[in-house]
Design a protein around this nucleic acid. Structure first.
Length: 137
DNA sequence: GCCAACGTTGGC
DNA sequence: GCCAACGTTGGC
């Protein structure tokens, strides 16, 4: 079981929209970054991820689960791009903000802090536990 | 809204 | 294959 983090601007695709999709989930399409795509190729069904609101919100608002492994991205004909499907699992009782993440020494190596531009990122198990604890889970 | 950081593109 | 120019992202 691996852990990940998915970033989205709530203007484009928000946690609420993701929740409304329910167990059907939603294709995480539109990613045009090789690093991010490569991480999606590594994902397995059942892997867990944080759902993070960038630009507006700047906080981890919920937990999602991978419900389809990497497949061609339907938002393009370009065969280079693939994506997974994810579904909402549960919201964070207390969303964990970027500020809180930065203030926590245990999370100083998180990709979210180190490379804030990467839209799909791996999360270490110890980071996962720490963020869940901070989020009230 | 600004702008630094990063990834990609394309001329050489 | 280098690297300058450009476009985009995302925290502030």
């Amino acid at each position: 079981m691996a852990y990940w983090l998915f970033k989205s601007e709530p203007d484009a695709w928000s946690w609420d929209q993701q929740v409304k999709k329910g167990d059907a989930g939603e294709e995480w399409g539109g990613v045009r970054n090789y690093q991010a795509r490569n991480f999606m190729r590594e994902m397995k069904i059942g892997d867990q991820g944080f759902f993070y609101h960038s630009r507006q919100g700047l906080e981890i608002v919920g937990i999602v689960e991978v419900c389809a492994e990497a497949h061609p991205d339907s938002t393009t004909d370009d065969a280079r791009w693939e994506c997974v499907d994810i579904k909402a699992v549960k919201p964070m009782p207390k969303p964990v903000s970027m500020k809180n993440v930065k203030a926590n020494p245990k999370l100083e190596d998180m990709v979210l802090v180190k490379n804030s531009r990467l839209s799909v990122q791996p999360v270490k198990p110890e980071e996962w536990e720490e963020v869940c604890r901070m989020g009230g889970l």
